[in-house]
Amino acid sequence: MSPRKPPPPDPDPLAPLIDAHTHLAACGGRDAQAVRAILDHAASVGVGGVVTVADDMVDARWAVAAAEWDDRAWAATALHPTHAGDLTDETAEELRMMAQHPRVVAVGETGLDWYWLQRSDDCAPREVQIESFRWHIALAKEVGKPLMIHNRDAGRDVLDVLDDAGSPETVIMHCFSEDEAIARECVERGYLLSFSGTVSFTNAAALQDAARVVPPELLLVETDAPFLTPHPFRGHPNQSYCLPYTVRALAQVRDDDADDLARQVTANAERAYRVRLPAA
C-alpha cells in the first residue's frame, strides 16, 4: 500500500452496516479523538459500528481502549498466528482477562499462517502456531465468545485443528480467501464467512465462486482496514467508511440486492457478536 495514493472517495451511503473486522490503531485511531473521527466518517456513509481487532499484545490493549472510548466500537483480542511465540503464562493471563471484558466480543484473530513461514524470520514456527491456536480455541469456549480465524495458505490445517480441538459455538472465518470446496465445508459446519475487499478484485474468480455458495445467514463483511481496499481502489489506504464498496461488490457477485444484503449482514454481525448498533 503506497502512502502516495490518496484515500478513496466516500461511497454512496448504505445502511445499516457493521465493519466485522478492522484495525483502528493501524488506521491511526490511537486516541479517543482519532477513533471518534474514523467512526464519524464511517457513520456518514451508514457504517454504524466496527469490531477492531488485535494482532499482538500492544494492539490488544489499543483495541480494548478504543472500545471503551466509543460505543460504536467493539474489540476482538488475541495473538495473530505469526506472533504466536508471544504466548506466555503472563500474556495468556492478560488475554484471558481481556476476553472477559464486556466490550470484547470475540477471541481473535487467531489461526494459522503458512504464508509467512518462509518469508519472515519473525514468524512463529508451525508447531508454535498450532499450540497457540489450540489455546485460543479453548479460551473462546471458556468465555463463551466467538472465535475469529486468521487463515493464510493453511485452510485444510485450520479445519483439521478445529475438528480435533472442537469448535466453539460461533466461528468466524475472517477475510475468507479459500475456494468453493472449503467454503462449502465451512457452511456445513455453520461457520460464518467474512468477506473483505478481496471479493471485488478482478483476479478473484475462485473467491467469488465461494461467495456464491454461502447462505445469507452465514455472511459477514469487513474492511480489514487499513488493508485490502476494494476495487477500483486496490492499494489505496482503507478505512471503515469504504465498507459499502465491498457490500455492493459482494451483492453484485451474488446477484443480491445491496440494501437487502446490508440488512442481512448487519443482523448476522449483531447476532454473532451479541451487540446492537447504537442509535444514530
Results as ranks from 00 to 15, higher is better:
P168D: 11
C123W: 04
V199R: 00
D122G: 15
A154V: 07
A181L: 11
R134F: 05
T202I: 14
L193I: 09
V143R: 01
R126S: 06
K145Q: 09
C123F: 09
A140E: 02
T110P: 00
A138C: 06
A124V: 06
E131L: 15
F195Q: 08
W135T: 08
F133A: 02
M148P: 01
T198S: 15
T110W: 06
R134T: 05
H101Y: 12
D113Q: 06
S177T: 08
V171I: 04
G190Q: 09
L159N: 07
D121S: 12
G144V: 04
A181F: 14
G108H: 05
L192W: 13
G166C: 08
C175K: 00
K141A: 10
S196V: 03
S120H: 09
E94F: 07
N151V: 11
E90M: 14
R189D: 06
Y115E: 10
P125Y: 11
V171L: 01
V105A: 03
G155I: 14
R189Y: 10
A154G: 03
I182R: 09
R119H: 08
P102M: 12
V143F: 03
I137L: 04
L162S: 04
I182E: 14
M98G: 04
Y191F: 13
S177Q: 02
T170S: 13
I137C: 01
K145S: 05
G111N: 01
V107H: 06
Q100P: 10
I172M: 05
S177R: 01
S120Y: 14
E188N: 11
V128S: 07
A154R: 00
Y115M: 11
D113W: 04
V158H: 05
I172G: 00
Y115P: 01
A106R: 02
C175E: 05
S167T: 13
E142C: 03
L112R: 00
A154T: 06
V107G: 02
R126A: 07
W114Q: 10
L193A: 04
A181V: 14
E142N: 05
F176Q: 03
